[in-house]
Simulated scan of single mutants.
Amino acid sequence: MGNVMRVNGPRVLMVDDEKKVADAYALRLDDVADVSVAYGGEEALAVVDDRPVPDVVLLDRHMPGLSGDEVLDRIRERDLRTRVVMVTAIDPGLGIVDMPFDDYLSKPVEREDLRAVIDQQCQVLAYELLGEYFRLESTRVVVDAELPADEIENDDRLAEIEARRAAIEERVLGLLPEAEELLTEFSGIDRGGY
Rank of each mutant, 00 (worst) to 15 (best):
1 M>D: 12
5 M>Q: 09
6 R>Q: 15
6 R>G: 13
8 N>I: 05
8 N>H: 10
12 V>I: 12
12 V>Q: 09
14 M>C: 09
19 K>S: 11
20 K>D: 14
21 V>L: 13
24 A>P: 02
26 A>D: 00
29 L>N: 02
29 L>M: 05
31 D>I: 04
32 V>P: 06
32 V>H: 07
33 A>I: 03
34 D>Q: 14
35 V>R: 02
42 E>D: 14
45 L>M: 09
45 L>E: 08
47 V>E: 08
48 V>K: 04
50 D>A: 15
51 R>K: 15
51 R>P: 12
52 P>L: 02
52 P>K: 04
55 D>V: 14
57 V>M: 06
59 L>Y: 14
60 D>Y: 07
61 R>N: 11
62 H>L: 13
63 M>T: 04
63 M>H: 02
64 P>D: 11
67 S>V: 01
71 V>R: 00
72 L>P: 07
76 R>W: 09
76 R>L: 03
77 E>V: 15
78 R>P: 04
78 R>H: 08
80 L>Q: 00
80 L>F: 04
83 R>I: 05
86 M>W: 03
87 V>F: 01
89 A>V: 03
90 I>W: 11
93 G>S: 02
93 G>I: 07
95 G>C: 07
101 F>I: 11
101 F>M: 13
102 D>S: 10
103 D>Q: 07
104 Y>T: 06
106 S>V: 13
108 P>C: 08
110 E>R: 13
110 E>K: 12
111 R>W: 15
112 E>R: 09
114 L>V: 01
116 A>Q: 06
118 I>R: 11
119 D>L: 05
119 D>C: 10
120 Q>E: 12
121 Q>I: 02
122 C>N: 06
125 L>P: 09
126 A>M: 03
127 Y>I: 13
128 E>D: 10
128 E>I: 13
129 L>I: 13
131 G>M: 06
132 E>F: 01
136 L>H: 04
136 L>R: 05
137 E>P: 06
139 T>H: 07
140 R>E: 06
141 V>D: 09
142 V>E: 01
143 V>M: 09
144 D>V: 12
144 D>G: 06
146 E>G: 04
148 P>L: 01
151 E>N: 01
151 E>W: 00
151 E>S: 01
154 N>Y: 00
155 D>F: 04
156 D>T: 14
158 L>T: 04
164 R>S: 12
166 A>W: 11
166 A>E: 11
166 A>I: 10
166 A>H: 08
166 A>Y: 08
167 A>Q: 05
168 I>R: 01
169 E>C: 15
171 R>Y: 11
172 V>T: 14
172 V>I: 15
172 V>W: 14
174 G>C: 08
175 L>V: 03
175 L>Q: 08
176 L>H: 07
176 L>E: 09
177 P>V: 06
179 A>G: 05
182 L>P: 04
184 T>N: 03
185 E>H: 09
187 S>D: 12
187 S>R: 12
192 G>Q: 06
193 G>Q: 05
193 G>P: 03
